[in-house]
Computed example of a mutant assay.
Amino acid sequence: MTLAMELRDVRVRYGPLEALHGVRLPVPAGALTVLLGRNGSGRTSVLRALAGTVLPASGSVLLHGRDVSRLQAQKRARLGVCFVPDVGAVHGSLTVRENLELASAGGDFDRALDGFPALRPLLGRTAGTLSGGEQRMLAVSRALLTPAGVVLLDEPAQGMAPAVADRAHRLLKGLDAAVVVAEQRLPQALTQGPGAPVVVHELRRGSVVFSGEPGELDPAGSGPPDASGPP
Rank of each mutant, 00 (worst) to 15 (best):
A4R: 15
R8A: 05
L102F: 15
R43S: 09
K173P: 05
L25G: 02
D226W: 15
D110I: 01
A57F: 03
Q135C: 09
T146Y: 03
Q184F: 05
A143S: 09
V68M: 06
H201A: 11
P117S: 07
D166Q: 12
A127S: 14
T2C: 10
A163G: 01
E134K: 10
D226Q: 13
T146V: 05
A112L: 04
V198R: 07
L62E: 10
R185T: 13
L153I: 05
D86Q: 15
A51R: 10
R185G: 07
R8M: 01
P197M: 12
V12F: 02
P121E: 12
L153G: 03
H64V: 07
V46R: 09
R78F: 04
R167S: 03
D67G: 08
A77Q: 00
A57Y: 03
V181T: 15
L35W: 09
G15L: 01
R125S: 10
G215T: 10
P194Q: 13
L35I: 08
E202A: 15
R125K: 12
E101A: 08
L172K: 08
G107M: 10
A77N: 05
H91F: 15
P147T: 10
L145K: 04
G115F: 00
R11D: 15
L62A: 14
A112S: 06
L63A: 06
R205L: 14
P117R: 06
T44D: 14
A89N: 12
G132M: 06
L175E: 04
S207Y: 03
L100R: 10
G30E: 12
G22L: 03
D154V: 07
R48T: 03
P56H: 01
R111G: 00
G128M: 13
L130E: 08
V140P: 00
A227R: 11
P16G: 02
F83R: 01
L123R: 00
D110R: 13
P225K: 01
V181S: 15
P147G: 14
V81K: 04
L152I: 06
P230K: 08
P85R: 09
G59K: 01
P28W: 13
L113E: 00
P219C: 05
R78S: 11
L144D: 07
V181K: 12
L62R: 15
E213T: 12
G195M: 08
S93A: 12
S58W: 09
V68S: 02
C82A: 13
L50V: 04
S58E: 15
V164T: 13
R76H: 04
S207W: 01
G52L: 04
G88A: 12
E183Y: 06
A178L: 07
P187G: 15
V27Q: 14
E101T: 10
L119S: 07
L7T: 03
V198G: 03
G223E: 04
L203S: 13
A77I: 01
E213P: 02
C82K: 09
